[in-house]
Design a protein around this nucleic acid. Structure first.
Length: 551
RNA sequence: GGUCCCAUGGUCAAGCGGUUCAAGACGCAACCCUCUCAAGGUUGAAUCCCGGGUUCGAUUCCCGGUGGGAUCACCA
């Protein structure tokens, strides 16, 4: 036993604290019993993943709905894959979605600091030192080649792969031999000594899946890498213990390593937190469902939503509709997009992974954008354009009041227009309002109906230009269009036209189309009445003249 | 391949042994409305993976199969 202590001292001479000291340093939280402490623990290896956003959303609202705490911890122990600045970017993106951590990394709050694992090395070592003393962890000197060999043998003989039992050579090394090897300067990792048996089944409870039967862990997993940093398995156990996490929320892919974590909690005599393994968000690929992949799917990174100009609120609402399917009905019943008011329940989570549905996102997004005021819409569009859409920005910058007027078209109605699912859509819909863009649109001609004679079109448009009354309300104005049409042989309504097609050149919709094409260069546009009231009168006349002259 | 998870329409899903002709939403189709479009309204097509049990009765419970997913690193 003395030898064990000697070994531990040799491995961690700088560590003077004990686990007891740490317990004193990180006392229990002072919260009501039902409060859930959740966390988001990303590694800074890239942009925020849509799946991570989903997990964060669930974690955040689990904490919020129980008056608990949602904190963020940076899992930056993989120095090889780490991308500089990714941690800050992750937080920024999270905050953009209004999922602001209440504590930890990215905030100035939290008494369980540090919240970056790279700064917690001494904590992990303190725990490992004690584990070594107790013989529950040991140094392993096996080389990658040796490990490879073991695996090959196991594969050939169809045995459970991994470092365990008789394959775990170093677990049988005496403390003396280990001391000798360390003194010789042999590089090593630290492994956890498992007492489990793969053939034993244990029943564990998952907050959203219920009971799961899994095999005990038998592997002597690495807990401290040769670079002195812990592996995920160990860091998770230590951090979630000392940070007092009550429910670990993470992706389903972690279920298979749950036995490892559970065994470590047990070995350390710590109470394990509850676990909630969330379904993965999938994507249909060639008829097969698969995990949303950062490499293949643009929507896997949340930056995609920013670039396209989906409002974060809509993304969140969509994600919530996946998390709690009753949310959608609640949202409709309460006419509210406010997730904070929704009674979220982790127990209503679906068990299998949803396919990411951009159509549905677009639907929520249209709803959301349509219910913004024109000023809000305009402001947000400007923010978006500044970052991602220079063409749109150029238009907005000409005259923001003009742009806001355009955004206001039929916005205050009971059923507002739903032209935009994302800010990226705006440019194409509204560019005809600007002369340069208009000229660009008509460069290749006007899409006038070839069945109507050019001079008829010219006559109608000229007459319209000379007689249009801008002071009328929408209904009265349109009646004047009907009258105008009748003057040139167009039926004033569909019924009349259908009843006697030979008698007419067309109907009022054909007249409206002429005006529309002259004014916008397009066959489609928002309600003409509003277009006429936004375009300057001079512009209207110029465009009509231009349309007539070009033919 | 071993292990684990999952299985209701194209998608998200209600359902939790017996009035449900199996909700609702998105999408799709048709029609209505309509100056076009975006909407809005109405209607419609479309689902319980298969096979055994248990039961008077299974979409619902159990078992097996099939299918899909996840995981098997000094990555998280």
């Amino acid at each position: 036993m003395d030898k064990q202590i000697e070994l531990a001292e040799l491995m961690f001479p700088e560590i003077k604290e004990t686990i007891g000291d740490l317990e004193a340093k990180y006392p229990p939280r002072n919260l009501i019993e039902s409060a859930e402490i959740t966390r988001f623990a990303p590694s800074p290896t890239g942009y925020l993943h849509t799946g991570s956003l989903f997990t964060s959303l669930v974690s955040y609202y689990l904490a919020k709905s129980t008056k608990g705490v949602f904190f963020v911890r940076l899992e930056d122990t993989d120095t090889k894959r780490e991308i500089k600045g990714a941690g800050e970017a992750l937080i920024k993106e999270l905050k953009n979605f209004n999922i602001a951590p209440m504590e930890g990394y990215g905030t100035d709050k939290g008494r369980y600091a540090p919240y970056e694992q790279s700064k917690r090395a001494s904590i992990y070592k303190t725990v490992i030192k004690e584990l070594v003393k107790q013989g529950l962890a040991y140094p392993c000197f096996c080389t990658p080649e040796e490990l490879d060999e073991i695996r090959q043998v196991q594969e050939k003989t169809k045995q459970l792969p991994g470092y365990y039992g008789s394959y775990a050579k170093c677990r049988y090394l005496s403390a003396e031999d280990a001391i000798k090897l360390i003194k010789e300067g042999k590089p090593y990792v630290v492994r956890f000594r498992s007492n489990g048996n793969h053939n034993n089944k244990i029943r564990v409870h998952d907050e959203i899946r219920g009971d799961i039967d899994i095999s005990e862990n038998e592997l002597d997993v690495v807990i401290l890498k040769s670079d002195g940093l812990p592996t995920y398995h160990f860091a998770h156990v230590v951090d979630d213990h000392f940070m007092k996490t009550t429910t670990v929320t993470r992706g389903e892919e972690w279920i298979s390593s749950l036995p490892i974590h559970l065994e470590m909690f047990k070995a350390l005599k710590w109470k394990a937190p509850k676990f909630a393994h969330l379904p993965l968000i999938n994507k249909l690929d060639n008829g097969n469902k698969r995990k949303l992949s950062k490499r293949k799917d643009p929507e896997a990174a949340v930056t995609y939503f920013f670039e396209e100009g989906y409002p974060p609120e809509a993304v969140l609402v969509y994600l919530m509709s996946i998390a709690n399917s009753n949310f959608e009905e609640w949202m409709i019943a309460n006419k509210s997009f406010d997730l904070d008011k929704f009674p979220f329940s982790i127990h209503k989570m679906s068990l299998d992974g949803a396919l990411f549905d951009l159509d549905k996102l677009a639907y929520f997004s249209k709803e959301f954008l349509a219910h913004l005021t024109a000023d809000e819409m305009s402001k947000r569009a400007l923010e978006y354009a500044k970052k991602y859409d220079p063409k749109l920005l150029a238009l907005i910058n000409k005259d923001i009041a003009y742009f806001t007027k355009i955004m206001n078209i039929e916005r205050d109605k009971e059923n507002p227009r739903k032209d935009y699912a994302k800010f990226k859509d705006i440019y194409n819909v509204i560019r005809f309002f600007y002369d340069d863009e208009y000229n660009e649109i008509i460069k290749n001609g006007y899409p006038f109906n070839p069945n109507i004679k050019k001079e008829v079109i010219a006559n109608v448009l000229t007459d319209f230009m000379n007689t249009n009354d801008f002071s009328l309300n929408e209904q009265d104005w349109f009646n004047t269009v009907k009258v105008l049409g009748e003057k040139y042989g167009f039926a004033s309504d569909r019924k009349a036209y259908k009843a006697n097609k030979d008698k007419y050149l067309g109907m009022v919709s054909d007249v409206a189309e002429m005006i529309r094409i002259a004014l916008t260069g397009n066959k489609n546009s928002p309600n003409l009445y509003y277009v006429l009231h936004i375009l300057p009168k001079e512009t209207i006349n110029n465009r009509i003249k231009q349309a007539i002259s070009v033919k």
